[in-house]
Nucleic acid binder design. Sequence first.
DNA 1: CATTTTGTTCAGTAATTAATGAACATTATG
DNA 2: CATAATGTTCATTAATTACTGAACAAAATG
Lengths: 168, 168
Amino acid sequence: MNIMNGESLATTGLSELEREVIELFIRMADVLNLPRSVGEIYGLLFISSAPLCLDDCRIRLNISKGSTSQGLKILRSFGAIRTVYIPGDRKDYYLAETSLRKIASGFAGEQVRPHVDGGKERIERIRELLEEHGSAEREMIEDKIDLLENWQKRAGKILPLILKLIGG
Amino acid sequence: MNIMNGESLATTGLSELEREVIELFIRMADVLNLPRSVGEIYGLLFISSAPLCLDDCRIRLNISKGSTSQGLKILRSFGAIRTVYIPGDRKDYYLAETSLRKIASGFAGEQVRPHVDGGKERIERIRELLEEHGSAEREMIEDKIDLLENWQKRAGKILPLILKLIGG
DNA sequence: CATTTTGTTCAGTAATTAATGAACATTATG
DNA sequence: CATAATGTTCATTAATTACTGAACAAAATG
């Protein structure tokens, strides 16, 4: 186990290096609109040499069972972590996925694509509303909706390209 | 002005079409981690045929002066709106910028780049911490930090490419 | 089949984030 | 220069979001 180094109880068990790495991922989580705890868990798994189970994460990060369970679920949902089976142990163990391509495409599919698709539906709805509109402003509005649709389509096409750029 | 159509007072002044467009931008704001009111204001300006002033936005969206002022400030900060001077009027009027290239590059520069740069600094700090580390785990950790740095650098290079893809 | 281990769910609470509006600047107007 | 118009700031409040922990599966163990 870890050698204690005279730090406060709250951070016991995490080296300064670990804390720094975890904080990096907390910031990333923030940018990606994910809960802080998700960043913490991923960070811990990322820097860990061995796979960790739910209780390892919970104890070392000092967060609740519920948050840990939820966080692992989210990370699994877009493939940022992998489950490792350890023979003779009932617990699930986790390892951070380190292929940026895999993580990014999982994230795109689970957390981004739904929004893009939702936007598409909404634009269709807006087009319908446009039917019931006086012709004075109508043409001008139609141009704006065209523009919106254009953005929408570009977003849909660029997303896969970004993944290509990331992935190799 | 707008023809009233027997709706609740709270939404008076916004046609269903306007409300739908605004809601689209509220969702976008959410994805981009911007306050809802920022999405509302941009949406209103986007669909408006004429430039609007602070009070126009405030009244039509039924939000406070403070939020409106703040929202316009944020939108100006990354070039999502432009100021229009109307002769003989002391008020500032605003128009939505409709060049996706301009908005995206403004957003990247103001809201994304700082995070990427912050990450770079943190990785440097982590490298320093690595110096004071036992050699048992050290090599393994070093590999991970290399990986992190690699991600970091890729992010920095991909960002401009994305803007190229968007911009044309 | 009772008990233990492991993990999930979710109602309640805490923490965070955004919105409000009054006080304050700043500039124009008469 | 007093008053009005316009916009900003920021302490307070409201709304949202994340976290907690106890209750609840589900499955393994003895």
